[in-house]
Computed example of a mutant assay.
Amino acid sequence: MSTNIKSLEITKENQEKLDKVRGLSIDSKNQEGFLIPLLHEIQSLFGYLPQESLQIVCEETKISMSEIYSVATFYSHFNLEPRGEYIIRVCLGTACYVKGSQDILDKLCSELKTEVGKTTADGKFSIEAARCLGACGLAPILTIGEKVYGRLVSDDVLRILKNYEEYNE
C-alpha cells in the first residue's frame, strides 16, 4: 500500500466511523458505479480518505487496493491526507500568474512552513494551487474558505494570515 495515504488515530469515535464504512461497503458492493459515491461518503465522515477505510472497502467489495487508489487519486475532490481548518487556494491562472501569484504562493508556503497540497503541522491551514478561481479582474487572488482576497502582492500575506486568530508568527 502506498505510504501517501495517512493512517487514522483509532479512537472510539473513529472506530464507529470505520464500522459505518464497513456497513456502507457491504450495502453498496452490488450496486453499479458504487465506488465514487462510497468514497464521497467516507470523505464526508473523516474529512479525507484514511488508509484504514480504504482497506475496509478493499476487503468488503473485493476491489483491489490499486483500483481504489487509482480512483481516489484521479479525482481532485478526494484527499488522502487530513485537510486544514482553513483551505487557502492561490490562483495560478494566466492573469494571476502574470501579476505575481507565484510569489504569493511561495510566501504563503514559507510563512506557514508547508508545501502546496499539504497541511500545516498544527492542522490549521492547507495550501492549494488553483488553475483559475474566476476573478481575473482582481488578479492576483487567493481565497481562504469562501473569502476572496484580491489585487495582492506577496507582502499582503502576513496581513491576511493575521486575520486568523490561530495564526501565530
Results as ranks from 00 to 15, higher is better:
Leu152Cys: 13
Gly137His: 11
Phe34Cys: 00
Tyr97Cys: 04
Glu60Arg: 00
Leu92Ala: 00
Ala129Thr: 04
Asn4Lys: 14
Ile141Ala: 03
Lys124Asp: 10
Leu39Ala: 04
Lys147Met: 13
Arg22Ser: 07
Gly137Ile: 04
Tyr86Leu: 06
Ile63Lys: 10
Cys132Phe: 05
Asp103Ser: 15
Tyr164Met: 12
Ser76Cys: 04
Ile88Leu: 06
Glu166Ala: 14
Val21Thr: 02
Met1Tyr: 10
Leu142Pro: 03
Glu32Gln: 09
Lys20Arg: 08
Phe125Glu: 01
Leu8Glu: 10
Gly137Trp: 03
Leu108Arg: 10
Met65Ala: 11
Ser154Gln: 15
Gly117His: 05
Ile68Met: 12
Ser7Cys: 06
Ile26Gly: 00
Val57Ser: 06
Gly93Met: 04
Thr11Arg: 01
Val98Phe: 03
Gln102Phe: 05
His40Asp: 13
Thr94Asn: 10
Asn4Trp: 05
Val153Thr: 15
Phe74His: 07
Glu9Gln: 12
Leu80Val: 04
Glu41Ser: 13
Ser101His: 01
Gln55Arg: 11
Glu115Met: 13
Tyr48Glu: 11
Ile42Thr: 01
Ala139Trp: 02
Asp103Glu: 15
Lys113Cys: 14
Glu60His: 00
Leu8Asp: 09
Glu111Pro: 00
Ile160Trp: 15
Asp106Glu: 15
Asn79Tyr: 13
Thr119Gly: 14
Gly23Val: 08
Cys91Leu: 02
Ser76Tyr: 08
Asp19Pro: 00
Glu166Tyr: 08
Leu54Cys: 07
Arg89Phe: 06
Thr73Asn: 12
Ser64Leu: 02
Ile36Pro: 01
Ile127Pro: 04
Asn14His: 08
Asp155Asn: 15
Gly117Gln: 05
Gly93Ser: 07
Glu128Ser: 03
Glu41Leu: 07
Gln31Cys: 00
Gly93Phe: 04
Pro82Gln: 11
Leu108Val: 12
Glu115Phe: 12
Thr61Val: 14
His77Ala: 05
Glu165Ala: 14
Cys109Tyr: 11
Ile5Asp: 03
Glu165His: 13
Leu142Ala: 06
Ile104His: 01
Leu35Gly: 02
Gly47Glu: 14
Phe78Arg: 08
Gly100Asp: 07
Glu59Ser: 12
Thr94Met: 08
Leu24Tyr: 06
Leu92His: 01
Lys147Asp: 14
Tyr69Asn: 12
Gly150Phe: 03
Asn4Val: 09
Leu138Tyr: 03
Ala95Gln: 09
Gly47Ile: 15
Leu161Pro: 06
Thr114Trp: 10
Lys17Asn: 07
Asp19Arg: 07
Thr3Ala: 08
Cys136Lys: 02
Glu13Arg: 12
Leu18Pro: 01
Arg151Val: 14
Lys99His: 07
